[in-house]
Design a binder for these strands. Structure first.
Lengths: 230, 230
DNA sequence: CCAAAAGTGTTGAGAATACACCCATGA
DNA sequence: TCATGGGTGTATTCTCAACACTTTTGG
């Protein structure tokens, strides 16, 4: 019975996370300029063009609306309740993205686009449509994912002191983590390498070795049947 | 820039798995009656109606086309490549379902609908559209899911001998499982209960105790922060 | 020299693994 | 009484959590 035609519209949305030691996990939002939910903060996104793939649509909208290019992107969930958009039936394929915030200080607050900004997930504003729900789902995904896939590095600088990683995990996982055991575990995986550099200490304390993630090594380990798990 | 109208159509598809000791994991397919891919086997599904939720659409199509009601259903992935349907742009939200096969011997081969049948995932026929890819994704999900969520029971009879569970896991996981250690582990979770009944042995061997899954107990355990993992 | 943050060694508890053996049934 | 599949005990290995101590820096 594949005959009924439907006037349903198809959109994509992108929940993009960044991280900083000061604000913890942040999400990228835009302030809507037009009709429904005018001036309200929302997740960047928009309608899919007739001949573009879903992922291309997400990347295009992100670039147009915020000027950002993500370095990790995966499909999250498709939201399709009949009344999620007051205008008409719209289903939205939500994507989940990660960005090294430090590289993208400059958010596009220009062009035709909306005002774009980062919001700590601890202090979210009111949100348009079902976007609150989307962010909740994305945070859940991030929390789960960080435990069984080394996605944490997508949020940190290329080179980072070990304590940054520890703080990131502390922000994401509920349970406390023991400094000693955490470092033993992560280092035993053997996909982090010392860069040889030392951090210039901010204020007090001993400077720390800088590390970087080695994706090649990680892929090798995967082939050998290795399984990451925090 | 949320202005462009799109003529994209929205469909849902359901990859439904069943299990039997003889065929292992099977997937439910229908034989197409109409134009593109006529007579080819395909995943049940169809277009979403203007005012129905995605999940309702899946359930409706499954019932119409196969007569089956699933006892587990979750969203799997949204497939949206521009050329996945030769007629026009169609995006499809694929769902993942599980069924206790033994309860649904009778597949609807009647009405207006297509011919419906179970196929062992080891002997799949040629498939319409990108449905091969969908099944692959669903199998991956099942294999992963069975490790950290007790979904296996959705495929077995309400009451089952322990060895059935073991055979199911053997069919799903690559690595061998030690009979002794597997039963110790599962039983230590404490969400299985003995029914008191014994199986009538088929052929040789000692009859086995019958077990059943206790969902209430499982939910309690979850609240206590329990984490299932094989 | 003191506080703060980084870095490392060790030990004991509990889980996973391997192995071995006993039990109930049909033929 | 034997073959087959079900049921259970236990020693060994390994992982993980807890704790304590040392090192390097700024003030």
């Amino acid at each position: 019975m594949q005959n009924k035609s439907s006037g349903i519209k198809v959109a994509v949305d992108a929940i993009v996370f960044g991280y900083s030691k000061h604000d913890g996990i942040s999400v990228l939002l835009i302030q809507r300029k037009y009709k429904p939910y005018k001036d309200i903060w929302a997740i960047p996104g928009g309608f899919v063009l007739e001949d573009e793939s879903l992922e291309d649509a997400v990347k295009r909208e992100l670039l147009e609306e915020t000027g950002i290019t993500v370095n990790y992107l995966e499909q999250l969930y498709t939201f399709g309740e009949p009344n999620r958009d007051p205008r008409q039936r719209v289903i939205s394929i939500a994507y989940f993205g990660l960005v090294k915030t430090s590289q993208y200080q400059e958010l596009k607050a220009s062009t035709d686009a909306e005002n774009a900004n980062w919001f700590s997930i601890k202090k979210l504003p009111s949100l348009a449509f079902d976007h609150k729900q989307m962010i909740t789902a994305a945070i859940e995904r991030l929390r789960a994912k960080v435990r069984y896939q080394p996605v944490g590095f997508e949020l940190l600088d290329k080179k980072f002191p070990f304590s940054d990683l520890e703080k990131l995990y502390l922000a994401l996982l509920d349970k406390e983590i023991n400094r000693r055991n955490f470092s033993k575990k992560i280092l035993s995986f053997d996909f982090l390498e010392e860069t040889g550099e030392l951090s210039k200490p901010e204020g007090k304390g001993r400077p720390s070795k800088m590390y970087q993630f080695n994706p090649k090594r990680y892929k090798e380990l995967l082939k050998e049947g290795f399984h990451f798990e925090i």
